[in-house]
Amino acid sequence: MYQLSGVTKRYRRGKATVQALDGVDLAIEDGGRLVIQGPTGGGKSTLLQMLGGLDRPDSGSVLLDGVDLATLPESRLTRVRAEKIGFVFQGFNLVPTLTAQENVETALVPLGLRPRERRERAGEVLASVGLGERRGHLPGELSGGQQQRVAIARALVKSPAVLLADEPTGNLDESTRDEIMDLLETLWEDNGLTFVMVTHDTALARRAPRLATIRKGRVTIREQVAGRG
């Protein structure tokens, strides 16, 4: 699925230059599951953004199904994001003025579906994450766990090939965290997704079959025996 070669990324923070990624080589197989861990500022989110086509490396290549996201024109990159990649963010990032249903529909807008089809698909996915009854609620009327479920539904409604999650349980309490992780793992298994997640949480990291640790822009991969809970 993914093949990263010699990916380097620097950016300026004030007067200093931060080496976020330093020659990263990484392969993620189709349907695989990878957890990225590392200290704050180590380059975890930058790596996730490279995988999601949200940012481009200074050098190196990021191949997704053989297409180099590093050199793809902006319009095609936008199309790749719209069709193939689902994002889940730590802060949920829901549009506060739109209902749960409408938030899920925003992911289908770039695909040019008819409003009726959008509504039906969004309704089905919301039901699958247990929020069928809350589809008309605004994000402000939902709990943190429910908001993250809406965000997961939004990521999955377009049936992406890849699900990228950046600290998806970072804002949740322990019981809700486990609930969300169970949901994500179920969806991964059921949908045959390639699932990459950034987390600080060691307990969650242990649940993945592959762990990528990133320090000072360099990645180390460790295969591990995964287990839930």
């Binding site: 994001r81 719209a82 994002f87 549009v95 925003t106 807008v109």
Partner: peptide, 8 residues
């Protein structure tokens, strides 16, 4: 976020 979702 909308751009990340594929909005042009």
């Amino acid at each position: 976020t909308l751009k990340a979702l594929g909005w042009r």
